[in-house]
Design a protein around this nucleic acid. Structure first.
Lengths: 232, 232
DNA sequence: CCATGTTTTCGACCACGAGGCGAAAACCAC
DNA sequence: GTGGTTTTCGCCTCGTGGTCGAAAACATGG
């Protein structure tokens, strides 16, 4: 009853919600299907899980066919989508990932592939629209209590630029004062010493910053109910 | 290249890390394998994903073979485990879930199944030890910023009893004063009006409480970087 | 019945993180 | 220099949570 290639085996796909913010607009990377099913609709990058890779390696491999992997600054698992009717037969199970590309990167993409603002998605294939919304929600939540902004921002940036990135991703205005204070107090933001020249209308030159780490880190004190005597 | 039953299809399993706290000790539900591979080792409940169910329905179905599903107060997805060498061939991909059973429930279990303290796991099958640790970590994290305690506690309880549950799950002492204030201020704890009789050595009778909701809810203000003018 | 011990509950205090606001700093253009 | 612009920083307030100790409400023993 455990022989391969029999009832109870399913194709396993990996999918990536790759997000990027340009000009205060968050966009997702989609490609347009040429063949049925759902020809003409837009789908998330991804593909079949291979025999010698885990799902994360697989999603990176498939992603490399659409964008330069070096431009994807962060990848994390979103979850499994397994509704038996999420697509036409034969049944497919998919593991979805979230990928983030810094705003200054502009990777070349194939002809069938393009960035689409997440607030104005085209007609999407299968359940890829819902998966995209899950990815956006995940990003929004993690901006608050992790340093995940490193994956959206250029290597060096001003507080105002970072404020615009956060505001676009969160969907509401963000105070530069507060953002600067919160992130520096957490130690995730460090000044480079450089300053950016002011715009054409003048203004004080902005100090440049960079993220102290480029690995995801959770802000500890988001955990309330700490052990006694914990030095916060 | 998309024909069924071919290279690229894998058996998909669902697994459940079912946790329960009794006598200040968190335990996980495991069953002892009778057959190879890994005969004699202890495994998480679960089984094959069926053709007409999604992974959550599947894990509930398989769980029903080990415990009374009515006793499982909460189920959520943990993630996908897909290392090609996580078990002997043929390859299997698994979606893991976290399940929680209230401390006053004592569901009947089959002969091959038993609760094991998570701090003293027996020899586990495949990667089930690591998955169990992931489940425990998830519970610990969510205790802080959600009302997930509803799934660990009896329907009505005193603050001291709840304190002991939290302390056991978190692995450190918890102040009853603080726990009471935090949870009531969040509105997740409401008094029933009843009081529990004091113990044999006397003491003020404790007020009984219950969780206001039995659905998972995230505590809003754990999200820092709020929108401007947000009434917290 | 009163003194003592035990457990729960509640208020007071403090520290800290974060939002709001306005002043000061540092630039441009005229 | 003067006015306009943008950034930065200090100060204030508020809410949350940790700590502590007193008060409440019971039991037991003399």
């Amino acid at each position: 009853m455990e022989t391969a290639g029999e009832q109870g085996n399913y194709a396993h796909d990996v999918l990536a919600v790759v997000l990027r913010i340009t000009g205060s607009v968050p966009s997702v990377l989609l490609w347009q299907r040429a063949r049925e099913p759902h020809a003409g609709r837009w789908a998330l990058p991804g593909g079949r899980l291979g025999p010698d890779e885990d799902v994360e390696a697989s999603v990176r491999r498939h992603l490399a066919e659409k964008v330069d992997l070096a431009e994807v600054a962060h990848v994390e698992q979103l979850g499994v989508f397994s509704d038996p009717h999420r697509g036409p037969p034969p049944r497919r199970v998919a593991t979805a990932f979230l990928g983030l590309v810094p705003s200054d990167a502009d990777p070349a993409v194939p002809d069938d592939t393009a960035w689409h603002p997440v607030d104005a998605l085209p007609e999407t294939a299968f359940d890829h629209g819902a998966i995209t919304r899950d990815g956006v929600d995940r990003l929004r939540a993690k901006l608050s209590y992790t340093n995940i902004g490193f994956a959206l921002a250029p290597d060096a940036f001003t507080v105002s630029e970072l404020r615009d990135l956060y505001a676009a991703a969160l969907g509401h205005r963000v105070s530069a004062t507060n953002l600067h204070r919160v992130l520096t107090r957490r130690g995730v933001l460090v000044p480079t010493g450089e300053t950016a020249p002011p715009g054409p209308s003048g203004g004080r030159p902005a100090a440049m910053y960079r993220f102290s780490e480029h690995e995801l880190r959770v802000t500890d004190p988001f955990a309330t109910l700490r052990p006694p005597g914990a030095a916060v």
